[in-house]
Design a protein around this nucleic acid. Structure first.
Lengths: 155, 155
DNA sequence: CCGTTGCGTTAGTGCCACTAACGATGTATA
DNA sequence: TATACATCGTTAGTGGCACTAACGCAACGG
């Protein structure tokens, strides 16, 4: 869509203003652009962040376990890991116990990179939620989280 | 992404759970699928709905005015209007005052179709917001709407 | 030993968001 | 009156993303 403002007052049909999926879609589109631009400025992609976060919190893991934890498709994860390995942020090594598997381990540089990306995304979050106070931010997370859990469970 | 549940408890990194853009993206992805499936069952697309809603509320308009009101790209609007015309829900006629322009008018069948799509989307809204009571629904709209307005204004 | 499953990878497909450019038309200015 | 610029609607794309299928190698269970 051309631009992603949901409500243009008198110019937006009332029936359209009632659609939560449109509001959520447009708002999420704006948020994605902002996050992608911010991450792009440090040469990163959102999947870099979630993969490093999973490795940092849970320790070394196989590609399929990482895919499960991050919800990145196995086929897409290959390129993400290639980029992280090329940057020196992870090491990819065959698992001696099972040659089908690689074990992916975060490096010290990877932890630093994660801290950098986390700071970038903290800035994005601050920007995105700027109009809301602390209680409203909590509420927005809670409400969207409940809707997400409901729909993901087949609701 | 593989599936769009945001929070798998202990399996989801804490740093990832803090990202509103990820929560909004995954939740909106679920909502879009549900809306697309529901509309697909009556042979419709979301742009059909917003275009008919704009014509019904504001009256006949040119393609570029409709594009402005619905935020559908002019290039994409061509196919949408083709489908609506083929279905007998709109009429596309040259504007005698300016041969560059078409005037698009909703038909009686188009108003009935709008009512049908509105009912389908009312069902989608009910399903999406099922975990929330009336006050929480109002709050979610309000919070997302404020964030949307802020970001769309360049925040 | 063999059939089935798992792992990682490659090779796609289809759709969507979006842009560029064209021909016809209208307008403003010199 | 002619010309330059802008508008309208349309066609023709592009790039990226969400997603699936299939392959070769490896492991496991019966």
């Amino acid at each position: 869509m051309e631009d992603l403002r949901f409500d243009y007052g008198d110019e937006t049909p009332e029936l359209v203003k009632r659609q939560l999926s449109r509001l959520a879609g447009m708002t999420s589109g704006l948020m994605s652009r902002i996050a992608a631009e911010a991450l792009g400025e440090v040469g990163a992609h959102k999947f870099h962040f979630v993969v490093l976060a999973a490795l940092d919190e849970f320790g070394p893991a196989s590609q399929s376990v990482i895919a499960d934890r991050t919800r990145v498709y196995r086929s897409d994860l290959v390129a993400v890991l290639n980029e992280l390995a090329d940057g020196g942020w992870i090491v990819r090594a065959p698992d001696p116990a099972d040659k089908r598997r690689n074990t992916i381990t975060i490096t010290d540089a990877g932890r630093e990179r994660l801290a950098e990306l986390d700071a970038v995304l903290a800035g994005v979050n601050e920007r995105i939620m700027a109009p809301l106070d602390a209680e409203e931010r909590r509420q927005l997370f809670a409400l969207l989280g409940r809707v997400n859990a409901h729909l993901a469970a087949g609701g």
